[in-house]
């Protein structure tokens, strides 16, 4: 990206970095800093350089769904600890902390909604909850979203942001890959469609399962979409990585996604695709 012109007025209110991490409202690409309301107004996209900030699941739903149409499903599901997993801390402790920090029961929110007046089902991941990792609850919620979409005869819109499977659930987290794949196939057999929106990042187990199975797959600009992230590839293979390794832009070039759609255009884009997939082709007009 082009060097940012250093205009001091835009730097004036940048808080001091905390633990070497820039403030979440400071653009990591150009250094511009925003108030919460400014970011929200701009759909969490930097107006200066078009960097797409992370969006929480409920913010995403608010950005996409027609006001007041979202009805959450399966909100009561909570992870358990089948392996009694303990690394330097207990998994149960990490779960409690994640729920307190994010206000979410787990890393996915599902429910019925309408986008540009077309009824649909949405399944949206929340990266803030343990890196958006997919364990039993994410797998189960995604399957229920597929079933709900099939039951109501609507299209499923999936929005992903995930580091992959949740290793604290061991082999059961790996089993969420085939589980979600089977759910998508059931939905497709029932005549349903799925639109996959890949946010940053969509990697490993989520990329290697339902996210890649959308009838239409779109990516957000600059999103990392890779089975293995650049750091691990570099460490394992010592290959020289291309500058755009694994990014949405590279994935379009290699034919893995249909389009890159910026966040400001996402809602109308989804509306158009949803209308094309709706049974009479002219939903909501």
């Amino acid at each position: 990206m082009a060097e940012r012109i250093d205009i001091s007025i835009e730097h004036r209110n940048v808080p001091e970095p905390l633990n070497d991490k820039p403030h979440p409202n400071t653009c990591p690409r150009c250094g511009s800093h925003y108030r919460d309301d400014e970011l929200a107004e701009n759909l969490h996209v930097c107006p200066h350089c078009n960097h797409h900030f992370a969006v929480r699941a409920r913010q995403r739903i608010a950005q996409l769904a027609d006001e007041g149409t979202f009805e959450e499903e399966a909100a009561e599901l909570r992870s358990q600890d089948p392996l009694e997993f303990f690394d330097v801390r207990a998994y149960t402790e990490r779960l409690v902390e994640a729920e307190q920090k994010t206000g979410q029961g787990d890393a996915m929110v599902i429910g019925g909604a309408a986008i540009e007046r077309v009824p649909c089902e949405v399944a949206v991941m929340d990266f803030a909850f343990m890196g958006g990792s997919m364990g039993s609850v994410v797998g189960e919620k995604f399957c229920r979203a597929c079933e709900s979409a099939a039951g109501r005869g609507v299209t499923l819109v999936s929005v992903t942001a995930s580091g992959g499977a949740r290793m604290q659930e061991g082999i059961l987290s790996l089993m969420q890959l085939p589980k979600t794949v089977c759910a998508v196939e059931d939905l497709k057999d029932a005549g349903g469609a799925m639109i996959s929106v890949m946010g940053h990042p969509t990697t490993a187990g989520v990329l290697a399962s339902f996210a890649s199975l959308g009838d239409v797959i779109v990516a957000e600009p600059g999103a990392l979409l890779a089975f293995t992230g650049p750091r691990v590839v570099q460490q394992t293979t010592r290959e020289k990585l291309p500058e755009d390794f694994g990014l949405a832009e590279s994935n379009v070039r290699f034919g893995h996604v249909d389009a890159i759609v910026g966040r400001r255009d996402l809602r109308p884009y989804l509306g158009r695709v949803l209308r094309l997939f709706s049974k009479n082709g002219a939903h909501g007009a």
Partner: peptide
Amino acid sequence: RFRSLGVYASST
């Protein structure tokens, strides 16, 4: 078979 794999709870 695969649909049934996973361990979770319903929170009250």
